[in-house]
Design a protein around this nucleic acid. Structure first.
Lengths: 112, 112
DNA sequence: TTTAGATACATAAGAATTTTATGTATCTTT
DNA sequence: AAAGATACATAAAATTCTTATGTATCTAAA
């Protein structure tokens, strides 16, 4: 399910931000949303996603709500308050990182 | 020597781009350049840098030229032709990644 | 003058995150 | 009936990075 490689650390930020935007989502829905938004360029693997969701839940950033739809299990994830706070931090971190990368990639611009 | 965590894969891109910009550089110089350009926000650790340089050399993307300056060793790295090509690819990849991350982080904008 | 800090390289152990591969099960479409 | 989509899960391996050390020289400060 992979295409462009993920950059380490960005998966958690993606998950948190999508949940912050969409209130509640289940795992498979997240993979499809990422595919759709990036026009297939970025594909979240299940092997990365599910352990990440479990870890975020264990850390108290997400809470789960299991539902049965069409006789099939769905685990809806929602941000906790702690998760909302962490989302803000992660987004700020990512934006700073992108800013730094742009400076590094375009050194000339940074020297006026 | 670490501050903001590096995102996986970006170190190689940074190295290649700096060499592409500066013709030849040695390891320590790269760490200082990154510090300086990012105003201390991003710090490349030696434990990450040196193995990365060795790997890039082994892959034929970099070539080395050892010099002695003030009785101390310096290993100057330079891009090979293959390295120049790879730099273009890595830069394009990074830019696409950033673009995708921005779409994911600002889902509303991507829906007009 | 000796000590701390900067310069310059290096590697090894461990942590963290991701890919790849595999498995189960249900529903839908061909 | 089979293939593909939906929906979860985990384990092994790969990759990349941090942390911790080590060596050695030069320079500046105490």
């Amino acid at each position: 399910m992979a295409n462009t490689k993920l950059y380490k650390g960005s998966l958690v930020t993606i998950i948190l931000r999508l949940l912050n935007e969409n209130d509640k989502m289940y795992g498979y829905e997240i993979t499809q949303k990422v595919r759709q938004l990036t026009k297939g360029e970025l594909k979240i693997t299940e092997g990365a996603l599910y352990p990440a969701l479990h870890k975020l839940e264990a850390e108290g950033l997400l809470k789960v709500e299991v539902q049965k739809v069409d006789n099939r299990l769905r685990k809806y994830y929602k941000l906790t308050e702690k998760g909302e706070t962490e989302t803000i931090n992660k987004l700020k971190e990512l934006q700073e990182y992108i800013k730094n990368m742009q400076v590094l990639i375009n050194p000339k611009w940074s020297l006026q």
